[in-house]
Design a protein around this nucleic acid. Structure first.
Lengths: 334, 334
DNA sequence: TTGTACGCGTTATCAT
DNA sequence: ATGATAACGCGTACAA
């Protein structure tokens, strides 16, 4: 089946000039009327509004953007739309931006630096007024110092970049997670970390080390469920076997639980598992996942505040959410 | 902390005129050189390229868009970025669009018609060249007939709209799911449907009915895990209790499994559960979820093909993925 | 209160 | 091979 398609010339849309002719006024009057200027008479305004309704006219945002040198659009850059962690951050951004009269567009980079650069160019180029980075790094070709106030980082601090950054104290949160396990009596507490080189990875390892000492064992994943499963299998092969594991995000924790079960272990009786983020799926695992909640919606709201008002808050508050995947070691009362 | 922010005037970016002056040529020549025209001498071209590197110049896409009357951007509209189902569709779109030289922006509508309308206006207004609708409805203010070839629907057919549509045969797929349960020996097969009024809901109910007859029981959810949990609790209160349940998506199936377990039932020994979509979490539930896989990446690719070439394929192929959440009724061998 | 004229940054046409 | 000029659609300073 062949149909008309996008590459054909678009039908001619009405311009402001058409409205002006229909209403019997000049384009400047139409422009003023549409902008809500008080300097336009009841009668003239009504004729203009009638013409707009009749034609279905909407202003051309491209021309308007060129003239005003701003678009009232924000662009959110994230590594992958597939990670539910980002969803609620975006919702927070949309709420706050919408309230301030800004639209929100999302760009998924799939970890591809080239795609990042192309999307970031949208900022340089006037398509969007501000950029929210959830990617943990500065897109190539972006000169941050000269873009002060137009870019903000969320969740991950970007090393070496002097950017307003929204997030929690990741090391402290990791320490809180491990302290919860220690409070239950665990001493052999392993860690499934994010990918090496990632800032969050380092911060969460740091907190885990502070709470456990240096003799505990560690495996690296890449924040996916499959990588968590593989890392857990690896840890279980080591002796002495850990009685608890702290995972750097919930998805890896979900993978870890699967690996433990496949190895014949019960969670939490034989192995306690704690995650990080509190994504929506965490409450529906079996057993439900103990985790650290990040205030994702607030992340988004704070990011917009930083962009619009230059207000960068200190660390936001995290919360330990205790569910059923953690218990004292060797606990058979479950 | 107060810092410079977005609402302040942006620093002046270099324009094509600046490059022209630096290279000692006219703007037309710069434009041609940047467009890769063969009509530009080696020496001139080199001076221009040097000036571009030196200044970090990038073309202003807004001005370019105004002049060319196209942006080489696609906009994907989806109900919520929080549903992992959409993620892989977007990835497919990005792949295919990128290969054709188009960028992809995503707009999350949060089910809000006003937000839908605002985002859709981006199309009318020249900010994007094409629109991919994953929302199951036409945004207000969009006159589809006049936009033929610029809009395509994915996953859900939009009733009454003559749009190219990408998706599977949902009724047939639902029937396949239920037939799998019947093949295992189940006869009391309940259904947890999507929200009433939704097209997918109707199509999947239709397939379920075709396979079960009309006497089976039904509960409605809204595609969230919590709604699946509530619906399952509702179904379990009825007599005779179903031995299997077909859920209209994986997230409701995950909720259903939780409700069953909380009611003291074992899955699949006491209750078989089958989902729909095969989101990434489906392989990591306990037990792993039997489901219908939709070729989401192909959805995205096909959507771009429809936009760029006017090619709308017939239904795409779905696959039954058998995991461990389904078994013969009363099966205690697991 | 309303209209005229210019400029936002780019590309295409035409002339050289 | 390169330059001058008009036009894309809109907002606003200025004039009336």
């Amino acid at each position: 089946m062949i149909a008309p398609h996008m590459t054909e010339p678009a039908p001619n849309r009405p311009r402001m000039e058409d409205i002006a002719r229909l209403a019997g006024v000049s384009v400047s009057t139409v422009s003023r009327a549409l902008a809500g200027s008080p300097r336009v008479t009841g009668d003239t305004r009504e004729r203009i509004e009638a013409a707009v309704r009749q034609t279905g006219y909407v202003v051309n945002q491209v021309a308007q953007g060129l003239r005003l040198q701003r678009s009232r659009q924000l662009l959110v850059l994230l590594p992958t739309i597939a990670n539910p962690f980002f969803a609620e951050v975006v919702q927070g951004i949309e709420e706050a931006a919408g309230a301030a009269g800004y639209g929100v567009l999302v760009g998924s980079t799939e970890g591809d630096p080239a795609r990042e650069a192309v999307l970031a160019r949208q900022l340089l180029t006037g398509v969007v007024d501000g950029l929210v980075l959830l990617t943990g790094r500065i897109p190539a070709g972006l000169d941050v110092p000269s873009l002060a106030g137009q870019v903000v980082a969320v969740s991950e601090t970007i090393p070496g970049a002097d950017l307003p950054t929204i997030g929690i104290d990741n090391a402290a949160a990791a320490q809180t997670a491990v302290d919860h396990l220690r409070g239950l009596g665990h001493r052999a507490i392993a860690h499934i970390a994010g990918p090496p080189g990632n800032v969050l990875t380092a911060q969460r390892i740091e907190g885990w080390r502070r709470a456990t000492g240096t003799h505990a064992v560690l495996a690296f994943g890449d924040f996916t469920m499959a990588s968590g499963e593989a890392a857990m299998a690896e840890l279980l092969a080591q002796l002495p076997r850990p009685t608890a594991v702290f995972c750097a995000n919930d998805e890896m924790a979900i993978g870890a639980i699967k690996a433990a079960r496949d190895a014949g272990l019960r969670v939490p009786e034989d192995l306690s598992v704690i995650g990080f983020d509190d994504i929506s799926f965490a409450a529906f695992t079996h057993p439900p996942l103990t985790t650290i909640r990040q205030p994702r919606r607030e992340f988004g709201q704070a990011a917009v505040a930083a962009l619009l008002a230059g207000q960068a808050p200190p660390h936001l508050a995290y919360t330990l959410i205790v569910r059923a995947s953690t218990a004292p070691p060797g606990d058979d009362t479950h």
